[in-house]
Protein backbone atom coordinates (compact mmCIF):
# COMPACT_ATOMS: atom_id res chain seq x y z
CA UNK A 1 0.00 0.00 0.00
CA UNK A 2 1.33 3.47 -0.82
CA UNK A 3 1.97 6.32 1.56
CA UNK A 4 -0.89 8.10 -0.11
CA UNK A 5 -3.39 5.37 0.54
CA UNK A 6 -2.04 4.52 3.97
CA UNK A 7 -2.50 8.04 5.24
CA UNK A 8 -5.30 9.13 3.00
CA UNK A 9 -8.31 7.12 3.84
CA UNK A 10 -11.42 8.94 2.86
CA UNK A 11 -10.95 12.15 0.82
CA UNK A 12 -13.84 13.82 2.62
CA UNK A 13 -12.07 12.98 5.87
CA UNK A 14 -8.89 14.64 4.57
CA UNK A 15 -10.88 17.70 3.61
CA UNK A 16 -12.49 17.79 7.02
CA UNK A 17 -9.10 17.52 8.72
CA UNK A 18 -7.74 20.41 6.65
CA UNK A 19 -10.80 22.44 7.55
CA UNK A 20 -9.94 21.83 11.19
CA UNK A 21 -6.36 23.02 10.62
CA UNK A 22 -4.86 19.54 10.86
CA UNK A 23 -1.77 20.17 8.74
CA UNK A 24 -0.76 16.51 8.92
CA UNK A 25 -3.50 15.81 6.38
CA UNK A 26 -1.93 18.12 3.80
CA UNK A 27 0.53 15.75 2.04
CA UNK A 28 -2.10 13.03 1.59
CA UNK A 29 -4.61 15.61 0.40
CA UNK A 30 -2.12 16.79 -2.20
CA UNK A 31 -1.61 13.20 -3.37
CA UNK A 32 -5.36 13.01 -3.97
CA UNK A 33 -5.52 16.35 -5.78
CA UNK A 34 -2.57 15.50 -8.05
CA UNK A 35 -4.25 12.24 -9.10
CA UNK A 36 -5.70 13.03 -12.52
CA UNK A 37 -7.42 9.70 -13.04
CA UNK A 38 -11.22 9.68 -13.15
CA UNK A 39 -11.22 8.15 -9.70
CA UNK A 40 -8.77 10.74 -8.45
CA UNK A 41 -10.85 13.59 -9.79
CA UNK A 42 -13.91 12.20 -8.12
CA UNK A 43 -12.00 12.00 -4.84
CA UNK A 44 -10.71 15.55 -5.30
CA UNK A 45 -14.28 16.74 -5.72
CA UNK A 46 -15.21 15.18 -2.39
CA UNK A 47 -12.18 16.66 -0.72
CA UNK A 48 -12.69 20.19 -2.01
CA UNK A 49 -16.36 20.14 -1.04
CA UNK A 50 -15.20 19.93 2.59
CA UNK A 51 -13.14 23.13 2.28
CA UNK A 52 -15.67 25.13 0.25
CA UNK A 53 -16.82 28.50 1.59
CA UNK A 54 -20.11 26.83 2.40
CA UNK A 55 -18.38 24.20 4.55
CA UNK A 56 -16.06 26.77 6.10
CA UNK A 57 -18.80 29.29 6.69
CA UNK A 58 -16.88 31.94 4.72
CA UNK A 59 -13.56 32.42 2.98
CA UNK A 60 -10.48 30.59 4.25
CA UNK A 61 -8.33 32.79 6.43
CA UNK A 62 -4.98 32.12 4.80
CA UNK A 63 -3.11 34.77 2.92
CA UNK A 64 -2.54 33.38 -0.60
CA UNK A 65 0.68 34.79 -2.01
CA UNK A 66 2.19 34.39 -5.45
CA UNK A 67 5.96 34.76 -5.75
CA UNK A 68 7.14 34.95 -9.32
CA UNK A 69 9.97 36.31 -11.43
CA UNK A 70 12.59 35.33 -13.97
CA UNK A 71 14.94 32.38 -13.38
CA UNK A 72 17.90 33.26 -11.18
CA UNK A 73 16.22 36.33 -9.67
CA UNK A 74 16.65 34.87 -6.20
CA UNK A 75 13.11 33.66 -5.53
CA UNK A 76 14.11 30.58 -3.56
CA UNK A 77 16.62 32.41 -1.37
CA UNK A 78 14.04 35.09 -0.75
CA UNK A 79 11.48 32.45 0.20
CA UNK A 80 14.02 30.88 2.49
CA UNK A 81 14.32 34.13 4.41
CA UNK A 82 10.59 34.86 4.24
CA UNK A 83 9.58 31.43 5.51
CA UNK A 84 12.03 31.85 8.41
CA UNK A 85 10.58 35.25 9.29
CA UNK A 86 6.99 34.08 9.06
CA UNK A 87 7.77 31.16 11.33
CA UNK A 88 9.35 33.56 13.85
CA UNK A 89 6.06 35.44 13.79
CA UNK A 90 4.29 32.18 14.56
CA UNK A 91 2.64 31.86 11.14
CA UNK A 92 2.38 28.52 9.39
CA UNK A 93 3.42 28.35 5.73
CA UNK A 94 2.76 26.06 2.79
CA UNK A 95 4.89 26.57 -0.31
CA UNK A 96 3.78 25.15 -3.64
CA UNK A 97 6.95 25.31 -5.73
CA UNK A 98 6.15 24.99 -9.41
CA UNK A 99 9.15 23.96 -11.46
CA UNK A 100 9.20 25.21 -15.03
CA UNK A 101 11.14 22.32 -16.53
CA UNK A 102 9.19 20.28 -18.93
CA UNK A 103 11.16 17.76 -20.88
CA UNK A 104 10.65 15.51 -23.81
CA UNK A 105 10.85 12.64 -21.34
CA UNK A 106 7.99 14.06 -19.29
CA UNK A 107 10.23 13.95 -16.23
CA UNK A 108 11.48 16.91 -14.19
CA UNK A 109 14.14 17.71 -11.64
CA UNK A 110 12.47 19.59 -8.85
CA UNK A 111 15.20 21.65 -7.26
CA UNK A 112 13.58 24.56 -5.44
CA UNK A 113 12.97 22.68 -2.24
CA UNK A 114 16.70 22.31 -1.67
CA UNK A 115 17.12 26.08 -1.66
CA UNK A 116 14.44 26.83 0.90
CA UNK A 117 16.06 26.36 4.31
CA UNK A 118 13.70 25.06 6.96
CA UNK A 119 13.67 22.80 9.96
CA UNK A 120 12.42 19.39 8.81
CA UNK A 121 10.95 18.76 12.25
CA UNK A 122 8.81 21.89 12.09
CA UNK A 123 5.30 20.87 11.03
CA UNK A 124 4.43 24.52 10.50
CA UNK A 125 6.20 24.44 7.12
CA UNK A 126 5.10 22.37 4.16
CA UNK A 127 6.93 22.45 0.84
CA UNK A 128 5.54 20.62 -2.16
CA UNK A 129 7.25 20.66 -5.55
CA UNK A 130 5.42 20.08 -8.78
CA UNK A 131 6.32 20.18 -12.43
CA UNK A 132 4.57 22.92 -14.36
CA UNK A 133 3.60 20.66 -17.23
CA UNK A 134 3.80 22.14 -20.64
CA UNK A 135 3.27 25.85 -20.31
CA UNK A 136 6.07 28.20 -19.19
CA UNK A 137 4.98 29.72 -15.89
CA UNK A 138 1.47 28.38 -16.21
CA UNK A 139 -0.28 26.61 -13.38
CA UNK A 140 -1.58 23.09 -13.74
CA UNK A 141 -5.10 22.50 -12.34
CA UNK A 142 -3.78 20.52 -9.33
CA UNK A 143 -1.78 23.54 -8.16
CA UNK A 144 -4.84 25.76 -8.29
CA UNK A 145 -6.87 23.20 -6.38
CA UNK A 146 -4.06 22.67 -3.90
CA UNK A 147 -4.14 26.37 -3.01
CA UNK A 148 -7.80 26.05 -2.11
CA UNK A 149 -7.36 22.85 -0.17
CA UNK A 150 -4.50 24.20 1.94
CA UNK A 151 -6.01 27.62 2.56
CA UNK A 152 -7.98 26.62 5.68
CA UNK A 153 -5.01 24.85 7.30
CA UNK A 154 -2.13 27.32 6.89
CA UNK A 155 -1.67 31.00 7.64
CA UNK A 156 0.12 31.45 4.33
CA UNK A 157 -0.07 29.52 1.10
CA UNK A 158 2.67 30.56 -1.30
CA UNK A 159 2.77 29.67 -4.98
CA UNK A 160 6.26 30.02 -6.41
CA UNK A 161 6.54 30.09 -10.19
CA UNK A 162 8.97 31.18 -12.85
CA UNK A 163 7.69 33.84 -15.14
CA UNK A 164 8.33 37.14 -16.85
CA UNK A 165 5.72 39.04 -18.76
CA UNK A 166 2.34 37.52 -19.30
CA UNK A 167 2.87 34.13 -17.75
CA UNK A 168 2.24 35.27 -14.20
CA UNK A 169 -1.44 35.87 -14.89
CA UNK A 170 -2.14 32.30 -13.76
CA UNK A 171 -0.61 33.03 -10.35
CA UNK A 172 -2.49 36.27 -10.15
CA UNK A 173 -5.73 34.36 -10.74
CA UNK A 174 -5.35 32.04 -7.77
CA UNK A 175 -3.69 34.24 -5.14
CA UNK A 176 -4.58 37.34 -3.14
CA UNK A 177 -1.24 39.07 -3.54
CA UNK A 178 1.42 38.69 -6.23
CA UNK A 179 5.01 39.66 -5.55
CA UNK A 180 7.24 39.89 -8.62
CA UNK A 181 10.90 39.32 -7.84
CA UNK A 182 13.51 41.20 -9.85
CA UNK A 183 17.26 41.10 -9.64
CA UNK A 184 19.32 44.24 -10.22
CA UNK A 185 20.74 44.84 -13.69
CA UNK A 186 18.24 42.64 -15.47
CA UNK A 187 16.00 45.02 -17.36
CA UNK A 188 13.33 42.53 -18.41
CA UNK A 189 10.72 43.40 -15.84
CA UNK A 190 11.26 47.10 -16.29
CA UNK A 191 10.86 46.79 -20.06
CA UNK A 192 7.77 44.61 -19.75
CA UNK A 193 6.20 47.06 -17.32
CA UNK A 194 6.94 50.04 -19.53
CA UNK A 195 5.67 48.28 -22.63
CA UNK A 196 2.50 47.29 -20.86
CA UNK A 197 3.15 43.60 -21.57
CA UNK A 198 3.10 42.93 -17.87
CA UNK A 199 0.43 43.99 -15.44
CA UNK A 200 1.60 45.99 -12.47
CA UNK A 201 2.14 43.50 -9.64
CA UNK A 202 0.92 44.03 -6.10
CA UNK A 203 4.45 44.17 -4.71
CA UNK A 204 7.79 44.44 -6.49
CA UNK A 205 10.82 42.94 -4.80
CA UNK A 206 14.38 43.85 -5.79
CA UNK A 207 16.80 41.20 -4.57
CA UNK A 208 20.53 41.28 -3.87
CA UNK A 209 20.42 44.56 -1.97
CA UNK A 210 23.90 43.63 -0.70
CA UNK A 211 25.22 44.60 -4.14
CA UNK A 212 24.63 48.23 -3.13
CA UNK A 213 24.49 50.71 -6.01
CA UNK A 214 23.09 48.40 -8.75
CA UNK A 215 20.28 47.33 -6.41
CA UNK A 216 19.48 50.94 -5.51
CA UNK A 217 19.45 51.91 -9.17
CA UNK A 218 17.12 49.02 -10.05
CA UNK A 219 14.76 50.14 -7.33
CA UNK A 220 14.78 53.76 -8.49
CA UNK A 221 14.19 52.73 -12.12
CA UNK A 222 11.23 50.59 -11.16
CA UNK A 223 9.77 53.33 -8.98
CA UNK A 224 9.96 55.89 -11.74
CA UNK A 225 8.44 53.43 -14.22
CA UNK A 226 5.58 52.82 -11.80
CA UNK A 227 5.07 56.58 -11.39
CA UNK A 228 4.93 56.96 -15.16
CA UNK A 229 2.27 54.27 -15.25
CA UNK A 230 0.31 56.02 -12.54
CA UNK A 231 0.86 53.28 -9.94
CA UNK A 232 2.76 55.26 -7.38
CA UNK A 233 1.32 53.23 -4.52
CA UNK A 234 2.82 49.91 -5.59
CA UNK A 235 5.51 49.15 -3.04
CA UNK A 236 9.04 48.37 -4.24
CA UNK A 237 10.98 46.53 -1.55
CA UNK A 238 14.73 45.96 -1.52
CA UNK A 239 15.85 42.73 0.10
CA UNK A 240 19.03 40.79 0.66
CA UNK A 241 18.94 37.17 1.64
CA UNK A 242 22.67 36.78 2.32
CA UNK A 243 23.45 37.15 6.01
CA UNK A 244 22.59 39.39 7.62
CA UNK A 245 19.31 39.41 5.65
CA UNK A 246 17.69 42.80 5.16
CA UNK A 247 14.38 44.13 3.97
CA UNK A 248 12.49 40.96 4.89
CA UNK A 249 10.42 42.72 7.55
CA UNK A 250 9.53 45.46 5.06
CA UNK A 251 8.38 42.82 2.62
CA UNK A 252 6.28 41.02 5.22
CA UNK A 253 4.68 44.36 6.01
CA UNK A 254 4.04 45.22 2.36
CA UNK A 255 2.40 41.85 1.75
CA UNK A 256 0.22 42.19 4.86
CA UNK A 257 -0.79 45.71 3.87
CA UNK A 258 -1.88 44.56 0.43
CA UNK A 259 -3.89 41.70 1.88
CA UNK A 260 -5.65 44.06 4.28
CA UNK A 261 -6.70 46.35 1.45
CA UNK A 262 -8.26 43.91 -1.00
CA UNK A 263 -11.87 42.78 -1.35
CA UNK A 264 -11.24 39.23 -0.19
CA UNK A 265 -14.58 37.55 -1.07
CA UNK A 266 -14.46 38.95 -4.61
CA UNK A 267 -10.82 37.89 -5.08
CA UNK A 268 -11.48 34.38 -3.86
CA UNK A 269 -14.66 33.99 -5.84
CA UNK A 270 -12.82 34.96 -9.01
CA UNK A 271 -10.03 32.50 -8.16
CA UNK A 272 -12.47 29.63 -7.76
CA UNK A 273 -14.24 30.41 -11.01
CA UNK A 274 -11.04 30.72 -13.01
CA UNK A 275 -9.69 27.54 -11.42
CA UNK A 276 -12.81 25.71 -12.46
CA UNK A 277 -12.48 27.02 -15.99
CA UNK A 278 -8.80 26.02 -16.17
CA UNK A 279 -9.61 22.56 -14.90
CA UNK A 280 -12.45 22.19 -17.39
CA UNK A 281 -10.15 23.36 -20.19
CA UNK A 282 -7.43 20.92 -19.20
CA UNK A 283 -9.88 18.04 -19.34
CA UNK A 284 -12.09 18.97 -22.24
CA UNK A 285 -9.89 21.21 -24.36
CA UNK A 286 -10.96 23.95 -26.74
CA UNK A 287 -13.77 21.75 -28.04
CA UNK A 288 -15.27 21.71 -24.55
CA UNK A 289 -14.99 25.49 -24.40
CA UNK A 290 -16.75 25.81 -27.77
CA UNK A 291 -19.56 23.65 -26.44
CA UNK A 292 -20.02 26.30 -23.74
CA UNK A 293 -20.20 29.02 -26.36
CA UNK A 294 -16.65 30.32 -25.90
CA UNK A 295 -14.62 31.65 -22.99
CA UNK A 296 -16.61 34.80 -22.42
CA UNK A 297 -19.87 32.89 -22.37
CA UNK A 298 -18.38 30.35 -19.95
CA UNK A 299 -17.26 33.12 -17.58
CA UNK A 300 -20.71 34.68 -17.76
CA UNK A 301 -22.27 31.33 -16.93
CA UNK A 302 -19.92 30.91 -13.93
CA UNK A 303 -20.81 34.40 -12.69
CA UNK A 304 -24.44 33.33 -12.57
CA UNK A 305 -23.74 30.48 -10.14
CA UNK A 306 -23.87 30.60 -6.35
CA UNK A 307 -20.76 32.33 -4.87
CA UNK A 308 -20.22 29.72 -2.15
CA UNK A 309 -19.70 26.82 -4.59
CA UNK A 310 -16.21 25.32 -4.52
CA UNK A 311 -14.11 24.94 -7.67
CA UNK A 312 -14.86 21.26 -8.11
CA UNK A 313 -18.62 21.91 -7.95
CA UNK A 314 -18.16 24.66 -10.52
CA UNK A 315 -16.35 22.24 -12.85
CA UNK A 316 -19.29 19.85 -12.45
CA UNK A 317 -21.65 22.64 -13.41
CA UNK A 318 -19.53 23.50 -16.45
CA UNK A 319 -19.46 19.89 -17.56
CA UNK A 320 -23.17 19.54 -17.17
CA UNK A 321 -23.73 22.70 -19.11
CA UNK A 322 -21.35 21.59 -21.87
CA UNK A 323 -23.11 18.28 -22.34
CA UNK A 324 -26.50 20.04 -22.35
CA UNK A 325 -25.29 22.52 -24.94
CA UNK A 326 -23.54 19.80 -26.91
CA UNK A 327 -26.67 17.66 -26.86
CA UNK A 328 -29.05 20.51 -27.58
Amino acid sequence: MSAARAAAGDPAELGRRLRECDRGAAPAALNVIEDRSARGRERTRKLLAEVSPAALGGEAGAHLVGVTGPPGAGKSSLLSALVGRWRELGRTVAVLAVDPTSRRSGGSLLGDRARIEHDPRDDGVLIRSTAAGTRMGGLAPPTREAVQALAPAFDLVVVETVGVGQSETDVEEVTDTVAVVVQPASGDTLQFLKAGIMEVPDVLVVTKADLGEPALRARRDLESALRALGSRDTPVVSVSSVPPPSGIDDLVEALDAHRAAIDLPATRLRARRLTALADFLAERGEAGLRALGGRREAERFLDSLHPALDAAALVGALEERASEEGGG
Partner: peptide
Protein backbone atom coordinates in the same frame (compact mmCIF):
# COMPACT_ATOMS: atom_id res chain seq x y z
CA UNK B 1 14.36 12.49 -14.98
CA UNK B 2 15.30 11.20 -18.43
CA UNK B 3 13.20 8.14 -17.72
CA UNK B 4 10.24 10.45 -17.23
CA UNK B 5 9.98 10.62 -13.46
CA UNK B 6 9.53 13.64 -11.26
CA UNK B 7 12.69 13.83 -9.20
CA UNK B 8 13.24 15.53 -5.88
Amino acid sequence: RDAGMDVV
